[in-house]
Simulated scan of single mutants.
Amino acid sequence: MSTDRRTLLADAAIAVLAESGIRGLTHRAVDRAANLPPGTTSAYYRTRQALLTALVRRLVALDQTELQEIGEQTPMPQHAEELVAGIAGFVERRLTGDGRRRSLARYACALESVRHPELREILVARENAGRQVVRDFLAAQGLPDPEDRTVTLLTCVDGLVFDRLVSGGGKVSEQEIRGLVMTALR
């Protein structure tokens, strides 16, 4: 039960952070979001830093699970257009619904990690099946440095997501993603 409560609190903290920003992330706000009695969050996470660390760990676990599932369910793209379509679907998930909330929380945590290196260690990019699909596709094209190209491509995709969240610009077009993929293929 303790683990379930901790997960519930971390999920509520992600929602609070996405809705209210870093200043709105308080123990009381998480209690309210989780529909739990006042003081529950502080009983599990005594300090704000402990709460933030739990939030970041949960966020990374959710992201890794999603990326692993994408990679396992996505066959190796045979053509650039298939990679474009796959990345477009991923970006759409990051800009809507629960994916949007997690994206907002992730970027807030990334900024907070500048002052708290222990968070940066948790947030560091990890290997996953989704990343592997992109790397394998680029390698199959006979390109030099598929690892570096994968990192560059995915960093640019992340930048598009960030831009749309910050600017309120809505969707990322397939044309924009196609441009990134084609640049990676040069």
Score class of each variant (00 low, 15 high):
42 S>F: 03
42 S>R: 09
43 A>H: 13
43 A>V: 05
45 Y>E: 08
47 T>Y: 08
48 R>M: 11
50 A>V: 03
50 A>I: 02
50 A>W: 03
51 L>V: 06
52 L>I: 15
53 T>A: 11
53 T>N: 07
53 T>K: 07
53 T>D: 12
54 A>D: 04
54 A>G: 09
54 A>R: 05
56 V>S: 08
56 V>G: 01
57 R>L: 14
57 R>V: 10
58 R>S: 14
58 R>F: 14
59 L>K: 05
62 L>Q: 15
63 D>P: 00
64 Q>N: 15
65 T>Y: 02
65 T>G: 11
67 L>W: 15
68 Q>G: 06
68 Q>R: 12
68 Q>P: 00
68 Q>L: 09
68 Q>Y: 03
69 E>R: 14
69 E>F: 10
71 G>P: 02
71 G>V: 11
73 Q>P: 00
73 Q>H: 13
73 Q>T: 13
73 Q>W: 02
74 T>A: 12
74 T>I: 04
74 T>K: 06
75 P>R: 12
75 P>K: 04
78 Q>R: 15
80 A>R: 10
81 E>M: 08
81 E>R: 02
83 L>W: 00
84 V>Q: 03
85 A>K: 06
86 G>F: 04
87 I>F: 05
87 I>H: 04
87 I>Y: 09
88 A>T: 02
89 G>V: 10
89 G>A: 11
89 G>W: 10
89 G>S: 12
89 G>N: 12
91 V>N: 03
92 E>M: 11
93 R>Q: 12
93 R>W: 14
94 R>E: 08
94 R>T: 02
97 G>T: 04
97 G>V: 09
97 G>Q: 05
98 D>S: 13
99 G>E: 01
101 R>D: 12
101 R>Y: 01
102 R>T: 03
102 R>Y: 03
104 L>P: 00
104 L>T: 10
105 A>K: 07
105 A>N: 03
105 A>C: 05
105 A>D: 07
106 R>W: 13
106 R>A: 12
107 Y>N: 04
108 A>P: 01
108 A>Y: 00
108 A>S: 08
109 C>W: 09
110 A>W: 13
111 L>R: 13
112 E>I: 00
112 E>Q: 10
113 S>T: 02
113 S>P: 02
113 S>H: 04
117 P>L: 05
118 E>C: 06
119 L>A: 06
119 L>N: 01
120 R>F: 10
121 E>T: 12
122 I>L: 09
123 L>H: 01
123 L>Y: 05
123 L>M: 11
123 L>F: 06
